[in-house]
Amino acid sequence: MTSNASTILLIDDEPQIRKFLRISLAAQGYHVIEAATGGDGLAQAALAKPDLLVLDLGLPDMDGQQVLSEVREWSQVPVLVLSVRAGEGEKVKALDNGANDYVTKPFGIQEFLARVRALLRQSQAGESPQATVSVGPLTVDFAYRRVSVEGVEVSLTRKEYAVLAQLAQHAGRVVTQQQLLKDIWGPTHVEDTHYLRVVVGHLRAKLADDPANPRFISTEAGVGYRLQSA
């Protein structure tokens, strides 16, 4: 394995499948890490900064579709779903949730490796997730989906966390209202700016962030929001 080998994270609860894929991928020069649960997979995705994520949907602690949705709240790491679920509806759902490709079990290893190579070619440099982002006393821990201010954990709803996580991934830069609405609520809600205003208002209240003199989230009038850079 070379020092610049791509890192691939396998999230699958079947030890035999993980072993088979680990041997096959390692033989091609890839660095392989593994997780047997969705929770561990999410933590590894943030901490290990993989170049590609191979995700099974039938996990013991949470559905793989949920894992995929949560990863997409803060990362654009390529995701290849590998699942026994062969129905069109399941495939469409995974792709809508942000999967880049979908392979059904049982599968041919040569086809699988070809799809891995294609996704790695398509991926852009610099898209690996960060484990944490800190802005002054505010810390967003992507591995454990925790937000704290001055060391005190803040309880956020799913949507509040999703908005903050996306802003944190682009700290110092404006994220447009349309982009936030599309990524978090879906493409049919890009005009529903009131949804976003309500969530940002609640988020600011929980972070004790004065919109008139923001420590964390500033409004770019008519455009979007910006998390102050660290």
Rank of each mutant, 00 (worst) to 15 (best):
D101W: 04
E90K: 06
D51W: 02
P129Q: 05
V92L: 12
V81Q: 09
L52T: 09
S134T: 15
L57Q: 08
S128V: 13
A118W: 10
L120P: 11
S69E: 10
S83I: 02
L52P: 01
Q65W: 00
F112M: 11
A125P: 08
R115S: 05
L120N: 11
L52V: 11
E150T: 14
L55T: 10
K93P: 00
A131Q: 14
V77E: 00
R121D: 08
E127A: 07
G151W: 10
V152P: 02
P50F: 12
E111T: 15
E153N: 15
F107I: 05
L95P: 01
G136R: 13
R85G: 01
T104H: 09
L82D: 06
V67L: 05
Q76K: 15
L95F: 07
V135W: 06
F112S: 04
R85I: 00
M62P: 00
E70I: 13
F107Y: 15
V135Q: 10
K91E: 01
V79K: 01
R72K: 08
D63M: 02
G87V: 05
L80E: 01
E111D: 15
S128H: 13
V84D: 06
L95I: 14
S128M: 03
T104I: 11
E73A: 09
V149K: 14
E88W: 07
G87Y: 04
V133W: 03
A143G: 12
D141K: 02
N100R: 11
R115L: 05
A114Y: 07
Q110R: 12
P137T: 14
